[in-house]
Structures are given as C-alpha cells and as structure tokens.
Design a protein around this nucleic acid. Sequence first.
DNA 1: AATAGATGTTAAACTAGGTTAACATCATTT
DNA 2: AAATGATGTTAACCTAGTTTAACATCTATT
Lengths: 194, 194
Amino acid sequence: MNAAPLLAYINKYISLTEDETELLLSKIVYRKYLKNQYIVQQGDVCRHEGFITSGCTKMFYIDANGQEHIVMFSIEDWWVSDMGSFITQTPADYHIQCIENTELIQFSYETIEGLYLEIPKLERFFRKIVERSIVAFQKRIVRNFSLSAKERYLVFKKNYPNIEQRIPQYMIASYLGITKEFLSKIKSQLILEQ
Amino acid sequence: MNAAPLLAYINKYISLTEDETELLLSKIVYRKYLKNQYIVQQGDVCRHEGFITSGCTKMFYIDANGQEHIVMFSIEDWWVSDMGSFITQTPADYHIQCIENTELIQFSYETIEGLYLEIPKLERFFRKIVERSIVAFQKRIVRNFSLSAKERYLVFKKNYPNIEQRIPQYMIASYLGITKEFLSKIKSQLILEQ
DNA sequence: AATAGATGTTAAACTAGGTTAACATCATTT
DNA sequence: AAATGATGTTAACCTAGTTTAACATCTATT
C-alpha cells in the first residue's frame, strides 16, 4: 500500500513542506477490510477517520422499522467516518460497511488532534473538504425535494458513472430513497423510452 | 449593534487573545436588512459570510417548475451564506431572504481569507462549525427518507420550538418538503389525536 | 450438478402526499 | 370601513411510489 493518493489529494488544497509530509507519513496506519466487514458500527464510538485507497463502502442507518437507508457511498480518494461520532467521540448513529474489499489509511482521533497542532495547515485542509462536502449534502437535500425518483436516478448515474456498476441495485435504490421494486420499474421505463 | 454574541460564540470553540479579538473586531462590518430583502440572490456571487445578531432568514431554491424549496432557516447565532458560491466565488444556487428585519455581522471573502492568515486559530473554529453543520445535514437527509411528513413536522417542532412561531406555515411546509395543504391536514390530525 | 443465498423483475392492490379550487381569516393600506 | 394581499383551511380527486408476493437469474459452495 502507498500514501501517494492521499498526498496528491491533500496537495490539491494546501502545500505541505517536506518535513510536514514526513511527519504526516510517520503517523499513517494502513488497514485492510474484507467485503462485508464493518468499519464502524452504530452504537460504537468512531475512533478513526479513513482515506480510501481502494475499495468501496456504504454508510447507512437502520430505522425504527428495521429498514436500511444509505446516506452515502465512498470510493477511492474519499473519506470515511461517522463524523458526528468522531468529532464528539460519542456513539455512532450510522454503520459503515465495506461493499468491496477495502484498503484505507486511518487516522485515530488522537493522531488527528496531534497533527492539527503540529501542522496547523491541516485545519485549513479539513475545513475546505468539509465545506465542499456540505455543499454536496445541500444539493442532495434539494434534489430529494424537487426531483422525481426517475430524475434522481439519472442524476446519480451522471454524477457517479463509475460507482453504479460496483454496487447492487437495491443499495442504489436505498440511496435514492425508493424501493428496489420501484427502481426496477424506473429502469424498464427508461429502456422503453429509448 | 454589538459583537458580543459573535465573540461568545467563537469562544465556545477556541480562545482568542486580546490582540486577536481586537484584530477581529477591527474587521467587523455591521449590516441591516429589512424584512423581504435579499442577502444573496441566485446567480450572484455570494461575497460575504454573515453572523446573525438579530432576525431570521430563509435559504431557498426555485426549481424548474417555479416552486420554492427551503433548504434552511437561520436565526440569531447562526451563519448565513451560500457556502457553495462563497468558497468558490461563483454564482449562487440559492436565494437568501430575510423573513424578519435582520442584523448581521458580515465578513467578505477577502476579509475572511486575510483573517485565516492573521489568526490561524480561526481555521480551527470554522473547521469545527462546518463539521457540526455536516452532521446536521446528514441527519436531515436520513429523516427525510425514514420519517413520514407528520413525524418530520414533530421533529421540526421539537428541534426548533422558538423558530416555529416566527415563520409562516407555508414556509415550514416547504422546509419539510410537503405542500401547505398537507401540513394543514397534519396539524388538524394532530389536534384530533390529543 | 445441485443447492442455497443473494440479487433482480413483474404485477396487482394500496396509501401518503399532491393538485385544484373554493372559502376563511387576518393585517395593512387607502 | 373597505379593499387588497398574504396566509391558512377543507375537501374531492389524482398519482408517485409502496407493499406484497411470486417468480427469475446469477454466483458460490458442496
């Protein structure tokens, strides 16, 4: 495993000196998970923030009726954590489970807090990526209100063309907020429309 | 107008020295808007981040059918900006309009960027508040999927008890993602259930 | 090759929430 | 006091999406 993708990603937002890069690399912990393993479980405290170098995960929530609702998928170059749990170090609301065998770089809460003190620039880096992420969530809220299920599916396909083939359809349905049966109906409608 | 609420708010996350506080105060611009005035308009670049000291605003989006969808309300001690527009300095997707006469403390893009350099601790402050904000948005997405309209209304009432009286119901309906007629129906059902 | 488990499809009956339209109430302006 | 505009309610009818259930397909394991 190697840290190049993480360094490249960080360098899109800030520039680290050689010393800072070395310090960061010295803190890196690699971790491998198999398909179906849990990175975080609802109720546990999320102790790490992870940067995916390969694989794919889903973050989801089980509602009062036992139904699964997928909040987000993460693939290479994305971060995984239950942020609410991580920042407050209290029990997680969500599960994060691997959809494929997944390799990631993990930073524990203590490591990240230490790095913020040693490399203050990292505060800027994380501020920026979280800001971007907020914008994406806001857009998703708007889409969920103003678009029909079919339109949301088309937006999903356009925004995540490479993710669709890697994920079973019933999970995509859950992400879109519809049943797998209805997604199936939408897909057959789209085929007829061509 | 005074900056005490902002300083108190910032001090919940970081502690500023006297010099830093003074520097921050020297950059402060107060701004008053009347009810119905726009702070940001869809299509304009959002040039400021504002901290509300009094009043109430809505951030909304007009969809392809001309329908208004409210993304969030903001009141005292909350921030207002179209974050997507602000961080990239490109045209805004949303309108932000005052529901009441509103007073706020404004920071221009240039001022904030300057302050980040002069008071690096502010990066930490904003990192922390955006992290909190993301958690709230995630929860909202989950609620929108897993709760019925009636349940969402009850959660809204519980989470924002003091906001409800200040805002017309048709706006609350828009925030909840339902029509005003259906909210009206929900309310009469709730009265009958008592 | 057979079985089991996971995934995907189809269709009929149902329901949460939308649409339309008419009316009620309240506040503001003249 | 009347008129206007903004807000809220009610009810009949409609539709997007759900539920249930049966079946189809694919993959992995024995």
